[in-house]
């Protein structure tokens, strides 16, 4: 069962998780905990599909998905940064909103399939040379462009966070906004920009589901993946490179129930379906059990920052 085709499929199933996890890493690096990932993914999924369905243009579809995700994040940012609302509840409200928004707009689209022009665009492309490497090639380098874009995003985000001045400033904002402010970093601007970008990435994760993975519109298409992404951020200890590993691991868990049918293993599919959720809990408990300095969240995470109350 653990064949090359299984691992290759795990990469595909992990791609929406990867985008959402990267988006939430970027968000949490600002010190804000946005629990609305599921909502932003759904907003991206429905807007991407809606625009893709009517225009047939993959670029417009992806742009719409990013804007929708960023719009959701914008509501959250306005509430938590400018209006100083509770971060947990604002995130939960965003998930409620995104869920309603997607089924409201998606009502007339249920069962519709992604147009040909888009599904062709996302056909697998073997990368010359790399795809010929035994085992690694067919697992990693024979995918659609969206999957490659996932690799690229993770690497770019890693470089941004660890190798650039802006990335350093961002981490300072998340660790100690007071000190960052004193060093004349515009805390509010940094928070807004990165939370919006994070939302755009979550929107892309949703669009991968509706445009490539399924590829059709169905109600509640994310099925809890946004929440798994929030857990993956902790699993990846806020590191984009580790997010790659985590997302693909959970991609594998996601498809294992389906793959196990037709083998000689006699376990109910519904019990196997529990696996990603169960493993998420085990991972979280393990991470919290093994707390260390290197593996800790941004120090300012979840704490609101108001200059005049410093």
């Amino acid at each position: 069962m653990l064949t090359i085709s299984f691992f290759s499929a795990a990469i595909i199933a992990g791609t929406p998780l990867l985008f959402a996890t990267l988006g939430e890493i970027l968000t949490q690096k600002t010190g804000n905990l946005n629990l609305g990932v599921e909502g932003m993914m759904l907003m991206g999924a429905v807007m991407g599909f809606l625009v893709g369905f009517h225009s047939g243009n993959p670029f417009l579809a992806l742009l719409a998905a990013m804007l929708a995700g960023a719009m959701g994040a914008g509501i959250y940012a306005l509430l938590t940064i400018s209006l100083r609302a509770n971060q947990e509840v604002s995130g939960l409200a965003l998930t409620t909103f995104g869920t309603g928004f997607s089924s409201f707009l998606g009502q007339s689209l249920v069962g519709q399939v992604t147009p040909k022009s888009i599904s062709n665009f996302f056909n697998p492309i073997a990368i010359p040379g790399l795809s010929k490497i035994p085992v690694i090639g067919p697992i990693f380098f024979n995918h659609d462009v969206f999957v490659y874009f996932g690799y690229l995003t993770a690497i770019l985000l890693g470089i941004y966070l660890y190798k650039t001045q802006k990335g350093l400033n961002l981490r300072a904002v998340g660790e100690n906004p007071g000190a960052a402010d004193a060093a004349s970093i515009n805390v509010t601007l940094y928070k807004y920009v990165h939370i919006l970008l994070g939302g755009a990435l979550c929107g892309l994760g949703g669009a991968y589901l509706s445009l490539v993975y399924v590829p059709a519109w169905q109600e509640n298409i994310t099925a809890g993946r946004g929440w798994i992404a929030v857990a993956l951020v902790i699993f990846a200890v806020w590191n984009p490179y580790r997010a790659l590993f985590g997302a693909y691991l959970f991609g594998g868990l996601d498809i294992i129930g389906f793959r196990i049918q037709g083998t000689s293993i006699q376990v109910s599919q519904y019990l196997i379906d529990m696996l990603p959720y169960l493993v998420t809990i085990i991972v979280l408990v393990f991470v919290s059990f093994k707390k260390s300095q290197e593996h800790s969240p941004p120090k300012g995470l979840g704490k609101p920052y108001f200059r005049e109350e410093r």
Binding site: A85, F97, G100, F101
Partner: peptide, 16 residues
């Protein structure tokens, strides 16, 4: 789903 949008709106505005 319009009802859940209204629910979320009420919550958003309350939070704000």
């Amino acid at each position: 789903a319009a009802a859940s949008i209204i629910q979320a709106m009420i919550l958003f505005f309350f939070l704000g």
